[in-house]
Design a protein around this nucleic acid. Sequence first.
DNA 1: AAAAAAATCGGAAACGTTTGCGATTTTCTA
DNA 2: TAGAAAATCGCAAACGTTTCCGATTTTTTT
Lengths: 336, 336
Amino acid sequence: MKNVTLKDVAKAAGVSYATVSRALSGSHQIGSDTRERIIKLCDEMGYTTNYVARSMVTKKTGLIGLVVPSIDNQFMSELAYYAEMSARGHGYNIMLCNSGPDLKQEKTVVKLLLSRQVDGILIVPQSPRTYENIRAYTDQVPTVFLSENLRDQPQSYVAVDNSRGTYIGARYLYELGHRDILYFGRRHTTTHQLRAEGYIRACQELNLHPRFFNSEFSRSSINTGYQLAQELFSRPIDYTAIFASTDSNALGVLKAADNAGIDIPGRLSLIGFDNISSTALPRIDLTTIEQPKREMAVQAVDMLRDKIENGTQGYVHQILMPVLIKRGTCRDLLSN
Amino acid sequence: MKNVTLKDVAKAAGVSYATVSRALSGSHQIGSDTRERIIKLCDEMGYTTNYVARSMVTKKTGLIGLVVPSIDNQFMSELAYYAEMSARGHGYNIMLCNSGPDLKQEKTVVKLLLSRQVDGILIVPQSPRTYENIRAYTDQVPTVFLSENLRDQPQSYVAVDNSRGTYIGARYLYELGHRDILYFGRRHTTTHQLRAEGYIRACQELNLHPRFFNSEFSRSSINTGYQLAQELFSRPIDYTAIFASTDSNALGVLKAADNAGIDIPGRLSLIGFDNISSTALPRIDLTTIEQPKREMAVQAVDMLRDKIENGTQGYVHQILMPVLIKRGTCRDLLSN
DNA sequence: AAAAAAATCGGAAACGTTTGCGATTTTCTA
DNA sequence: TAGAAAATCGCAAACGTTTCCGATTTTTTT
């Protein structure tokens, strides 16, 4: 039951516990014969170094706080997977926190993480107000924001080129012969603002008329996207394609369309954004714009490590390239 | 930059730092006037208690290690969500580790968690061999297994009544008029053994002939389930319903059926197990057996807390009730 | 072969808490 | 009001490491 400590193996080896510490740490200040003897003794006795004691003196915990609105979201759980794998590969462990729906909980967990003495924080914001919500803490610990653009804020983040994503998608629809494309989704965050802008830019270049169907539903989930889409389909359909601002919204559109008897992609083409894993499911097969989740996560922990280990100040905005995932929800109007 | 410590506020308050500690901890050994003065001073100075220092003396980290095969799996990310919420509500934080596909990594992360001095470990096994794989460590720290049955092993776990789940599902199909039900899936773990048994039991009671389509594909994912289903549909279909051992397999069956032009539920009824969130998606709408993920997670952390805080020895097998989720993939053969 | 340099190891402080014990002060009891 | 009990607080040890510094021994240099 009792954990074996440095002192125990020092006593058994007949050396000081400073020597044992040096043997394990690969220090040069020790004879190679005694090192081997001690290392052998260590695993005979089942010694493992106590990280909290080490943290006490090194002032480093090797802990990264990962705060996400909720881990049971596909997009975030994928990010979390890659972040954990990458972090652990570099000697860090992940402390996971759900920041829930409200800003208060988000602030609470960040404060908690600070108390836990994490070396850095990786956060995917729950709201556009997250930045100011936790600003008081972001200068106390290295922090990088994930997946959400902060535009001109003096904070490091890694995100996809959202504007380019919708731009690519819109051009793809154009190539398929679509001339009336409806943009479905809000512009409540910088990220979504950028997505809308990319769509507008493509429209301008292609001489199309940008059209929007927005709403003030607060949290984008399948249900609310669905309800919004129901409202949409109660009106006449004078467009041939819908660009949904997120896969989640696209799924809502899909459900509403099925209910209303609107054939997708027969009557209406549909494209999403994010490429969450369920878009690849049978019968869904949603054409979408992929956020390179693996790359995002890896870059984010690299960025964080740089801040932690090299004390890099300043901030960097890392923008990754989106990629078009062609699947089955977009109809080619020309090759008929 | 420099964190404010107990000593700092003690000096500022003109008391010993023992007094400050007692003021924060709500001890009775302190005057209410000085307590208030100190508490006020603490948040003026921005003091937060250093958990690693506290852990050093209390021998408790307030950390729970959560090890899952991979967090980007819907089932596990849902479990993780509820586990984290529940744990944090009781003053614990979650250290997340992916145990990956191989046993070596699983053992590595468990060892790592021990080094980190976690108070307990919550683990969803990656393989039936997990139990023996980490047995050397499970007596060094409170451990509870999640979602996987261990049958007769002397270890605590919480799992759904898998046998009852398939039993309920098979009876449901029978009520709809199905008499030829094919069971689709392996029996490579105790959990899956139990699921098969429940199916068999129902067949016996209902005077049905149990039929299996098994395979030795090693990891159940959509793709391998899909490949297996393709093989299945290359043979004559002399059954009216398929009971897939997991939703993941059911999704594979669905995809293969669509490709082969087999109408579900028109020609073939389909039922899954787990009720992962994408089963509720439009166009999927899979009838399935739900594992109560929230309850499982909550019970698991409660069980773990009991071991940690009360030093409860022994082991308990907590079995939760599955519930039938009726959706759109099962056809009623009688009401025609 | 003597002096200098390098290698090897031990002593001890430090990290920031919690807590048992003793000392002092205050309040209560008779 | 004097003695006892209770309340309040400080001292110091302890948790298990890492690392600076100095002491001792070994190797190298001239």
